[in-house]
Design a protein around this nucleic acid. Sequence first.
DNA 1: GAGTCAACGATTTTCGAAAATCTTCTCCAT
DNA 2: ATGGAGAAGATTTTCGAAAATCGTTGACTC
Lengths: 224, 224
Amino acid sequence: MQQKRTGSRTLAGDAYEAIRQAIGAGDFKPGDRLRFADLQALCDMSVTPVREALARLTAEGFTVLDDHRGYSVAPLSLAELRDVTATRQLCEGEAVRLSVLNGDADWEARLVAAHHLMARIPQVRDDMPTAMREDWEARHATFHAALVSACGSPVLLEICEKLFSRADRYRRLSVSLSGGARDVAGEHRRLVELALARDAEGAASALREHYGLTAAALEGFFAV
Amino acid sequence: MQQKRTGSRTLAGDAYEAIRQAIGAGDFKPGDRLRFADLQALCDMSVTPVREALARLTAEGFTVLDDHRGYSVAPLSLAELRDVTATRQLCEGEAVRLSVLNGDADWEARLVAAHHLMARIPQVRDDMPTAMREDWEARHATFHAALVSACGSPVLLEICEKLFSRADRYRRLSVSLSGGARDVAGEHRRLVELALARDAEGAASALREHYGLTAAALEGFFAV
DNA sequence: GAGTCAACGATTTTCGAAAATCTTCTCCAT
DNA sequence: ATGGAGAAGATTTTCGAAAATCGTTGACTC
């Protein structure tokens, strides 16, 4: 076996990326068991790096471990969506507040740049090519990361990152329905305005509301 | 090789416990490299479970991974102490607030019981036998866990747990100096009083102050 | 018919060694 | 002296198979 590295410096890193992407793409559904045999076939490597990748994914909440019964994709639920949203409102709200208070001109530049890149892709829609949608997701993540990047607290930042990717799973579940009554681009624009105007409380409120609206839009999926 | 399990259901779990304890006990100092050979000797097992244990410890911030250069004990610093403290004040403050708002009689009972167990051990002092100090640490952790346990947000709770053990490393660094001017037991008692009186904001403030004082007492260690 | 238990198959978990990578030291040219 | 190439040693990372464990099936008893 033994094939070349794609991006990271270890096979375990590659496995992490591959499995995470496969989960994001829906190849494995929430609750599905993740058998080592399948994952080894997917990643084309031995069990050891796969195991390490799953350990990392479990730490971030993507997968869960049941002793001697292996790993499975973490289930999605309305309760967790609400929980993650509330915790995000707390942590990222504070992080953006601190960012606005502490951020310098470099931070402003990063924020404006990230926003511009995201805004260039018109609107997330179902009929978009997958590649463009993936591209938007990446820029969206970069934008939100930029927003909080000047908070000055690495610990808080790490928490925000993890919460973001955890919420991301819910967002990807529903590319379709957000199209309607909501002005996501406007919300993002307003966040930038408030940040540049150095309105810390306002930006924090706007971000909390932004997440609240996103969660509300997703709740429909669990009305089954 | 292949020895019996101590508590968990897998060797990896045992390794996790053993290494975590060894770090807590100071057998490995912050910044020390953790060589697999040493850890295998310590745990008396092969490399695979040790590797999994380190992956988990890294996820919780006890250790850090440098690709192809292995793991080492996460360094301690004044900056991180302050960062962790501030983040704890944010997250645990909110968690205790929610706990007071949502907690039922069972929660009150858990809290009172945990406090009682902790209060029975008089005071943490240098001349205490190690076993008793370890015992107090465990009860202290249980007490703080009980305090936030009714917040209703598993995600927030998990964050609090991780932050607690991360801060724990700093506390264990200094069993000695807290003895002086501070009334830790009184602070704990006051927390229980406020919680039982259903003063959510008061309890949150008291907890934030409690952590602030703890951090302040520890800052001396980094004045080197 | 319901319940217990042993054996089987599927899967995870662990092992011990091989391969890959980094670090250090030596030696040589500048 | 200084700096760099290259070999040797130490350590991590990965492999492929063996061992341990779990869930299930099916025979056997009450």
